[in-house]
């Protein structure tokens, strides 16, 4: 849990920020399937938490509950001290502060790359068009796709699309960024360009929740690794400890399968 002592070493220092995202006894069912079982998780400001686990373990669902793309049955989720409101304007306001990056990019297909990064700024934040465009171009340059600004998403490679998606989320100045398997739909040679952008974000102190299968990223960028299986958090540890010396059998089994194939 949040009390897990995290020592400063290779995996990355744990920032001592205040709790930003707090999940308390969260439960969710998909029909008969109990996908989230009494999940308690606290993410502190500036912390990078990587969620790993076998498929079907509930990690994507967990990520999606944080901005209420999935509703929960019982328990509470609070962001920056405020519990998630019901569907409506209140929730929309809160979602604007939570960046989300999807496995399938989900860039707006009918808008150019630039318009994708501007839309939230102008329509939700009510930023002036000129200011929004300036910021969008800066962000696109930062993620390395500035030259593609006038193109449509379908004209970009997967890696470029995902970097645009990250820029689109960053344009809202989010308090926390959620990544739901951001590299799972990418060709292998494009994974690194996306991970590099994420590494950079992590170094800059962005609070991040990352659901991923990229163990290298987990090792190098995470402050904490959360291991999930069958809807439960089985183990939480600082990355070196988790990868070199997992405590639970479930984690040992999982790691043995993915690390030596």
């Amino acid at each position: 849990m949040s009390e897990v002592p995290v020592t400063e070493n290779a995996g990355g220092a744990a920032p001592a920020g205040d709790p930003l995202v707090v999940l308390d006894k969260v439960n969710k069912h998909f029909g008969a399937l109990h996908v989230l079982q009494d999940i308690n998780l606290t993410i502190r400001r500036g912390e990078v938490v990587v969620v790993i686990g076998p498929s079907g373990s509930g990690k994507s669902t967990l990520c999606r509950t944080i901005n209420r793309l999935e509703t929960i049955d019982t328990g509470t989720i609070a962001i920056d001290g405020k519990p998630l409101p019901q569907e409506g304007r209140e929730l929309a306001r809160l979602r604007a502060d939570v960046g989300m990056v999807f496995q399938s990019f989900n860039l707006f297909a009918h808008k150019t790359v630039l318009e994708n990064v501007m839309l939230g700024q102008t329509k939700v934040r009510r930023t002036e068009k000129a200011a929004a465009e300036k910021k969008a171009r800066t962000l696109l340059d930062r993620v390395g796709v500035g030259a593609q600004a006038e193109k449509y998403p379908a004209q970009l490679s997967g890696g470029q699309q995902q970097r645009v998606a990250i820029a689109r989320a960053l344009a809202m100045d989010p308090k926390v960024m959620l990544f739901d398997e951001p590299t799972s739909a990418l060709d292998p040679e494009m994974i690194n360009e996306v991970l590099e952008v994420m590494q950079q974000l992590a170094r800059e102190g962005m609070t991040m929740v990352v659901v991923t299968h990229e163990m290298g990223f987990a090792r190098s960028a995470a402050n904490r690794v959360v291991f999930m299986a069958d809807g439960k958090i089985i183990e939480e540890a600082e990355p070196t400890q988790f990868f070199d010396n997992p405590r639970s059998d479930r984690a040992k089994d999982f790691l043995s399968k993915i690390l030596h194939h």
Partner: peptide, 12 residues
């Protein structure tokens, strides 16, 4: 996903 992305940005 298109609607999910829009709503994640805080659009109503």
């Amino acid at each position: 996903g298109q609607a999910e992305a829009a709503r994640s940005l805080g659009m109503t």
